[in-house]
Design a protein around this nucleic acid. Structure first.
Lengths: 325, 325
DNA sequence: TTGAAAGCGATACCAG
DNA sequence: CTGGTATCGCTTTCAA
């Protein structure tokens, strides 16, 4: 592999001049031409490690998220990546599989891998763990979808409470009074907020809260599957289910199909996120749609601003979701 | 940020000793302890750029694929990533959005980013472009799902022809004689092979090939959607459709639903890949299932072997798909 | 504009 | 087992 030194020698100029050429500085036309030729002849390419060692920038950003197998996340990634790439950054992904240990390790890992910044979809990390890893390092972090309480960093979130309230209100307007909710653990912010929206809708409509109708499990298929069976086995089963996550929703649908329970005739389901699957059903399942494109784009833009030196205090935005029928 | 020099000074040993400690060499217990303390006290972390500059290894591998929004790809990625990570590699993803220009650029980019190796799901790159980018560089590449004709590199593929033949044969055994196929462009290897399988099934069963029943479009929703409408508008419409890609299949299903055409009563559809969506339908849509886990795992293992210096001639494997009902 | 030279922070050789 | 030192390839003063 040719180095800048080889190019300089062949072009008959100094390394400095070649470097300036590469980085878009002013170079005398004659030199410019000979350097260009030398680079072509030697098939020279900048050594990224040497450059980063010197500049302390890698032009890479880390993306830390639970998984890419969930369309909601992969859509966010896709949109993130597009914006970042256009600005000359490439992305290093880590998926922590909803494992607290991995989440911490990969966070640590990404930071020590030399990324310039981080886009982070948190789940179980604590503020203390966060600070310890970030300590002393000037790595801007944008939190996405969820924010760790007590952490001082930008956050791009959605209006979970509001849109959940709307979804449940919609069910109520359709005549439902016994509405179940299947959601994730209370440790997850989005799960808490969505349940808060559910509760608010009940309250605003004068419906008494029934503890038996709220199930907190994990954000996975099995929770939806078993949750559905559980709910339908109740003495007084719900007539509608608010399913607050795509995997849960798929679990619910699957259980219903296996038991011969017709959606929406026998029980109505209102889902979250899984637009592709849900819109494919007959009739389409109503869902809360989160604007993945906008989430990704916003997060990327915010990070870029930080990387360009913006030192303003951390901000949080709540992007609006919409109901899709 | 503390450097190895700071650690050495504080621990009262030389840089070399610290380096050896970091990299798991033999160090006298007393030194070992003082180095450990110094590292902790200074919150020292290896500078990855300096290390890579010296060692010429980044412990990163590039993943180049069309998109992560298609579950088939994101599943492969997930499984790849798991294996690579366990072996100490992290992954740098690039999605080229099925754009030939981007495909070349990102390939180039990934190589010049200093990855140790590459896992590549090719689409339109030519063997010449491939060689030019790889020229002189010793970056092992594992091709996945498709292989560029004339390129000398490992390839982890699936048995497209065989499984397509099985799928179509299944339709024939179910009594269908007019079976349409909607597929991708002839420039894409998997599309060619799947059509080859389709043709073989017809031939083996003595069914005359009807040119009007094969549609070559792009591997996208619109092709399936319009393809379906086109097929059903024929004077003699097919009674079954072999849809050779997940996005196409979703397009087909959507079009059918909008037109009130019942699947499978009015027309039978045999899909490819989109197991999650298809198994959610009532009744589940039969599909050819490609073993994403195995594909990803195999590719990762092959790459690791290359990175460890295996210099055997390139190999190709065809993993078996299965029919899912 | 150009070039000489000083690092950036690690690794690895080789002598002790 | 330890330490001095050259080196990886590039960027960046600072003079000229």
């Amino acid at each position: 592999m040719a180095t800048i030194k080889d190019v300089a020698r062949m072009a008959g100029v100094s390394q400095s001049t070649v470097s300036k050429y590469i980085n878009g500085g002013q170079v005398r036309p004659a030199n410019l031409e000979s350097i260009r030729q030398a680079i072509a002849a030697l098939d020279y390419r900048v050594n990224p490690f040497a450059r980063s060692l010197k500049t302390q920038r890698s032009h890479s950003v880390g993306i830390l998220l639970p998984t890419l197998s969930v369309p909601f996340y992969s859509q966010i990634f896709t949109s993130l990546d597009k914006v970042l790439r256009e600005r000359g950054y490439h992305t290093i992904i880590s998926c922590y599989s909803s494992d607290h240990g991995l989440e911490r390790d990969y966070f640590n890992f990404l930071v020590s891998t030399g990324v310039d910044g981080l886009i982070y979809l948190p789940e179980n990390l604590t503020a203390d763990e966060f600070s310890e890893i970030i300590a002393n390092r000037s790595v801007p972090v944008i939190q996405v979808d969820r924010a760790i309480p007590g952490v001082c960093a930008d956050a791009v979130l959605t209006d979970n409470t509001e849109s959940s309230c709307q979804a449940v209100s919609h069910l109520i307007r359709s005549g439902h009074r016994r509405i179940a909710a299947i959601t994730g653990p209370g440790s997850i912010q989005t799960a808490r907020e969505r349940i808060a929206g559910y509760l608010r809708a009940l309250e605003e409509n004068g419906i008494l809260y029934d503890d038996a109708l709220v199930l907190r499990g994990e954000l996975i298929f099995a929770t939806g599957y078993q949750g559905f069976l559980h709910m339908m086995g109740l003495a007084a089963p719900p007539t509608a289910i608010f399913s607050t996550n795509s995997d849960i929703t798929i679990g619910v649908i699957t259980a219903a199909r296996e038991r011969g329970v017709n959606i929406p005739n026998d029980v109505t389901v209102f889902g979250y996120d899984c637009v592709d699957v849900c819109s494919m059903m007959t009739p389409p399942l109503p869902v809360v749609y989160q604007p993945e494109q906008e989430i990704g784009r916003t997060a990327a833009q915010w990070l870029i601003r930080r990387l360009e030196g913006d030192g303003d205090p951390p901000r949080t935005v709540r992007l609006k979701c919409s109901l899709q029928f």
